[in-house]
């Protein structure tokens, strides 16, 4: 095959993929030697697709998140967004963080308007945009409140609205609901589903919660425990548009069981290693 044809073929496969992760490996130097956090990971996320990455604690999920967000460098392989190889935070990517990330000194309105403010958008305009997304996450009426006056779930919705206001093509979320209780998490999952159906955004969710992954995703990428690799990619065959009712369906249960089957081995390996580590430190 001539080089130009190969290039063309590559361009065709990449065309529909918004996010391509190609052979990404990340090593950290620690006191106990070098650790390979992520090992030769490759996958792609298509335009408008909702993909979850699931894995046990310590499998390098958050490292993948930080790499895709352009917050860490020094990895092997490449990440491209709409064909551009990234070398730092990419303007098409919006990030929602696991930890509390709202600004406590700004009202909900000014929190959400923040990305537009730093880009120099006029006040009236950015507030109008912010109001639209505050409404979308269901926080209308709370525009003038400060984060300390809201619940954890509401604050995380503020963070989501703040990311959406920027209208990123790709939404990256790192366990955004990890700190919330199960019921709130399911309800927020519904909200995320609705928003994604409206905006048709390419979304990559990092999670350790199997139900959340199945409830929201088109595909679930299962990661192995250290070094983090792609173990398997599961297609979630649940109808869309989805509602909260899907959680009770038989197909849902089958997917959860299937993923847990793959994950159990990794999770127990992770648990055994962290216990061994604790024992070593004690001795």
């Amino acid at each position: 095959m001539p080089a130009s044809a190969a290039k063309l073929r590559l361009a065709e496969t990449v065309k529909e993929a918004d996010l391509v992760i190609d052979g990404v490996t990340m090593r950290f130097e620690t006191r106990e030697g070098a650790i390979t956090a992520v090992d030769d990971m490759s996958f792609s996320v298509e335009r408008g697709e909702f993909v979850s990455i699931i894995g046990p604690s310590g499998c390098g999920k958050s490292t993948v998140f930080n790499i895709l967000g352009g917050l860490v460098r020094g990895y092997e392989g490449k990440v491209s967004v709409g064909g551009d190889v990234i070398s730092g935070p990419h303007p098409s990517i919006g990030m929602v963080f696991q930890e509390e990330s709202t600004f406590p000194w700004r009202t909900v309105l000014d929190n959400v308007a923040f990305p537009l403010e730093v880009k120099g958008v006029r006040k009236a305009e950015r507030h109008e945009a912010a109001r639209h997304f505050i409404d979308m996450v269901g926080l209308n009426g709370f525009e003038q409140r400060y984060p300390a006056e809201l619940s954890g779930g509401m604050r995380q919705r503020v963070a989501i609205a703040r990311t959406l206001v920027f209208e990123p093509k790709i939404l990256l979320m790192d366990e955004p609901f990890a700190a919330l209780d199960e019921q709130t998490r399911l309800l927020l999952g519904d909200k995320v589903l609705k928003i994604q159906e409206t905006l048709k955004q390419t979304t990559l969710l990092i999670t350790h919660n199997i139900t959340e992954a199945v409830q929201l995703s088109d595909r679930v990428i299962i990661m192995t425990f250290r070094p983090g690799k792609v173990k398997r990619i599961v297609d979630i065959r649940l109808p869309r548009p989805r509602t909260g009712d899907v959680v009770g369906s038989e197909a849902f249960g089958r997917h959860v069981a299937e993923i847990w089957n793959d994950l159990r081995e990794e999770a127990s390996r992770g648990m055994a290693e962290s216990e061994a580590g604790a024992r070593r430190r004690k001795g």
């Binding site: 917050l71 935070p89 303007p91 990330s101 600004f103 923040f114």
Partner: peptide, 24 residues
């Protein structure tokens, strides 16, 4: 996490300081 929010929006160093680090 607040610093990372700033980085993810590609803030200039002065924006990063005055909009995030100092108020925090």
């Amino acid at each position: 996490s607040l610093i990372n929010v700033g980085l993810s929006y590609n803030l200039t160093p002065s924006q990063q300081f005055w909009k995030i680090e100092f108020p925090a």
